[in-house]
Design a protein around this nucleic acid. Structure first.
Length: 398
RNA sequence: GGGUAGAUGGCAGAGUGGUCAAUUGCACCAGACUGUAAAUCUGGCCUCUUCGGAGUUCGGGGGUUCGAAUCCCUCUCUACCCA
């Protein structure tokens, strides 16, 4: 039923940042193979309400890989941990989460990740099912399993000690809670980004304390965003969402720095190293289009990938308009050009729109007419194409 | 608990009574060039505007003044030192 251990290992190690420990992973895979028992692979997520982007898909793809190899994915929904907030990275406070929003977020989240993992085959476990019924004695027992020194050994915390920024006691609880989840579900492997290593390792310790075989911690590299520098993240606006339209995903991919391509190919596609080398040896522009097409095909299907490339060629190589473009619904035959621009989402304010008109950035119609000035009225016809920079929108009259 | 230093536009960081809607850098948007890459150059980057201006901004509130981001009082928050 299971593939040979070496074959599984080489697949699983591809694109992994760190494995603690590789030896344990091999042992577990071997036992799984021998006893024909799937490994239990844990991935946890706090339903704090966010849009899933490509950065999140990196560890999720690893989870998917385990699934494809016949192992059991266990998704922890952090209904309890969400109330504490992960001290990893810069998230500091997450106040104001009510049980209702947590539930909505969780559902929303599952819908989004269904594009990456087979959710129907996952064991989904809210961690409030355990922590929600805990008493003070249970909590004391958990707290007794770690020391202040151990928690402070964590880089995030030690940095904060050095920098003199506050560390609240409940934040120290987070790694223990996450670790305890591993005990509850008897995890064989836990996945996460590299920033999760500490939390994952706590799970190992707690499992040892509970006389379980310690889980393997497999971390994935942090994907850098469109700017090619910083971690992909919503707050930085340098992300591609799994729910983005095909043209958005393709266009954003085309705008990444060339040097990013190997990273993205490795972490976001199934292409082998050899294949990637071949692609990158060619023209960068072609390589990037292929990357964009791979990403679009992943979320929207192969047909969409073909279509989006054809559109791109039309718009940017031939200077025309794409076939597929967003629409703005307007009422009236003639509207001030600034109002139209704001309505189309080109500009946040009329002042900004005015400046763009003065810069000559806005044009419309087949002849790419520019308005005489920012006070001009725009005669609207159904299907009129308006443009500002790379943004192209079709007018639809209501 | 005591003391010291701070809080300025997305970030960093100038500005200490009028010429400040606030120097500069980064980020961001647009134009030229192009491969929606990089590099480079240019314009823009609080809101509204009948394009003359107008309105709201420099942690919150109050005050002094013809006039305050700039002075005073007070509150809140942050960092550092001592306990």
């Amino acid at each position: 039923m299971f593939r040979p251990v070496d074959e599984q290992l080489s697949l699983l190690l591809r694109g992994a940042a760190q494995v603690e420990t590789e030896k344990d992973l091999r042992t577990k895979l071997q036992r799984s193979f021998d006893t024909n028992t799937p490994l239990r692979v844990k991935y946890g997520i706090d339903p704090t309400g966010f849009d899933v982007h490509l950065g999140h898909t990196v560890p999720l793809r690893k989870l998917r890989q385990f699934q494809e190899l016949g192992h059991k994915a266990v998704l922890i929904i952090g209904t309890a941990t969400a109330l504490v907030g992960d001290p990893s990275g810069r998230d500091s406070s997450r106040a104001g989460l009510t049980p209702e929003t947590i539930e909505t977020n969780a559902k929303n989240y599952l819908t989004q990740i269904a594009k990456v993992v087979d959710v129907s085959q996952c064991e989904v476990r809210p961690n409030a099912e355990c922590f929600g019924i805990w008493g003070f004695a249970d909590m004391l027992k958990l707290l007794g399993q770690s020391t202040v020194q151990q928690i402070l050994a964590r880089e995030d915390f030690s940095n904060r000690v050095k920098a003199g920024t506050a560390i609240y006691l409940h934040e120290c609880l987070y790694p223990l809670m996450q670790g305890w989840d591993s005990v509850e579900i008897k995890a064989d492997v836990e996945l996460g980004g590299t920033e999760q290593l500490f939390n994952l390792m706590v799970g190992r310790d707690l499992q040892k304390g509970a006389s379980q075989a310690p889980q393997v911690c497999l971390t994935s590299p942090i994907l850098r965003g469109l700017d090619g520098v910083k971690k992909m993240g919503k707050s930085l606006g340098n992300f591609i969402g799994v729910g983005d339209a095909a043209r958005e995903q393709f266009g954003k991919t085309m705008s990444i720095p060339d040097e990013m391509m190997r990273e993205w190919y490795t972490l976001l596609t199934n292409r082998s190293t050899g294949e990637i080398d071949g692609i990158l040896a060619g023209k960068p522009n072609e390589a990037k289009k292929q990357l964009g097409a791979d990403i679009v095909a992943w979320f929207h299907g192969a047909d969409a990938a073909v279509q989006v490339q054809a559109d791109w060629a039309k718009q940017f190589s031939q200077g025309g308009d794409p076939d597929d473009m967003p629409e703005v619904i307007l009422a009236g035959q003639s509207l001030p050009v600034l109002d139209v621009m704001v309505a189309a989402g080109f500009c946040k304010s009329k002042s900004e729109a005015r400046k763009k008109v003065e810069e000559g950035a806005f044009n419309y119609g087949p002849d790419r007419t520019k308005p005489a000035d920012f006070k001009a009225m725009l005669d609207l016809t159904d299907g009129l194409v308006i443009r500002l920079g790379r943004k192209v929108v079709r007018v639809k009259l209501s």
